[in-house]
Design a protein around this nucleic acid. Structure first.
Lengths: 235, 235
DNA sequence: CGCGTTCTTGAGATTGGTCAATAGATGTGG
DNA sequence: CCACATCTATTGACCAATCTCAAGAACGCG
């Protein structure tokens, strides 16, 4: 089911953080040139194909990851073995923060759309943040952002009818893109995000298509009728 | 609906953090005597009656709160006005962490069982944490704990049948008590925690009572049949 | 082009929601 | 301490949404 890609397979090379095209929005955004000089351990960069696993719940966390592009799901498993997706990680997000407090990873992180990440060794982040208040503050910000996101999943994506949940998920997916287009996920994943079955997810998407709330331009690539989806989402 | 208790009404006095009976488990657990000397602003203590509001979503956050005893709900509202409870805050928990990153409060915090809190001004926590790595680390821990809790609500309390959710909530409520007894909440609140209606919450509790999974010793105070509730929860 | 996987759709069973009535509990004032 | 008013919990009947199981269609890969 899950493709077996090891890290070394996927390694692209060493990142040049100073010249990073995402500098503005990344954890290290506020570091200065002198700080980067302290980065003796190089920051590795990887490209991960769809279906590969970045880390697993329970693994000892030694690195956190900045996502440069792509989408990952954070998955937790229920006692009965079914999966529940608790968050999506996208461009400029950080995942694996928990290792800075010495925890093992709390989720499986699985690639939904091809993903590029930079691997930040905990030690590096830890030592930089000790000397650098800006980085330190940014860490807290990230944590708060994750928490906000978790709350939103509960209130928006796990409450109300299937139609409402699907509509809210769609709106959430385009919000960051500024355009009315979005790439959807496998129906099974949508179900696991919304707490509904695969079939209900499929039926709902199909119905939205019939009502022209969605227009499929490519496989799983859609243009959205945002105003009407809003109507459904809030109804 | 919400009782109107102002802060000044409820103020008990000034806390003596050094002699705090919760020192072991509190945010300030690892501070030393010399640190406390820096606490020029006194830490105020309050007792809040059931139904009162500690803070509201959107308020400018100037204090975080350590809960000494009692239970609070953190509530968010949906566009249609219905409420969703995203977390419970109990003894030794901290709430309002978000103000340290300069955010307004993200939830309404409403008292479910009479609650005693200590109010920690952001400035104080901020300045102490700058000089004290232990406190600083404890802040990160608290954030991570909140995040873990948020994830658990999603996977445990918003997934599966109504019976499973209620059973999981009950187990979660006793887990910290070490005993098989617990104080339940109004059915409406249970519904808002589990994403089900008041009626379904009531029916489920009533059914559990009939099956002797719950024995009511006082109004809303129950002894639980933990093994069988586990069976239902995991089923 | 054929195979395996995922998506879609149907039919029927079940759960949970809705609306409404009743029973209990809590609180108030006399 | 009782009677009344109010609020919350429980229960019933009915209905709608969602799940389950199953089959066929579409798609993506080799």
């Amino acid at each position: 089911m899950v493709k077996n890609v090891t890290f070394t397979d996927a390694r692209d090379g060493v990142a040049d953080c100073l010249k990073c095209s995402l500098r503005e929005s990344v954890l290290f955004a506020n570091l200065e040139e002198k700080d980067f000089e302290k980065l003796h351990d190089p920051i590795d960069q990887y490209t991960l194909p769809v279906g590969s696993t970045l880390y697993r719940a329970g693994d000892k966390g030694e690195r956190m990851y900045t996502v440069r592009s792509g989408v990952l799901k954070l998955v937790q498993y229920l006692p009965d073995g079914s999966q529940r997706i608790v968050r999506l990680i996208r461009s400029t997000d950080i995942t694996g923060l928990e290792c800075i407090v010495g925890e093992t990873y709390q989720h499986d992180a699985v690639v939904l759309h091809e993903t590029e990440v930079c691997a930040l060794p905990v030690r590096v982040v830890e030592s930089l943040s000790k000397e650098n208040p800006a980085l330190h503050r940014e860490l807290l910000n990230r944590w708060q952002r994750a928490l906000k996101e978790a709350d939103a999943w509960l209130t928006e994506l796990s409450t109300g009818s299937a139609k409402q949940r699907v509509a809210r998920l769609l709106l959430r997916l385009v919000k960051d893109t500024q355009m009315s287009e979005c790439n959807l996920f496998a129906r099974e994943d949508m179900g696991a995000m919304l707490g509904i079955t695969t079939e209900t997810a499929s039926r709902t998407i199909a119905e939205f298509k019939r009502q022209s709330l969605l227009v499929e331009t490519n496989t799983n690539h859609f243009l959205l009728d945002i105003p009407n989806l809003h109507r459904i989402a809030e109804d």
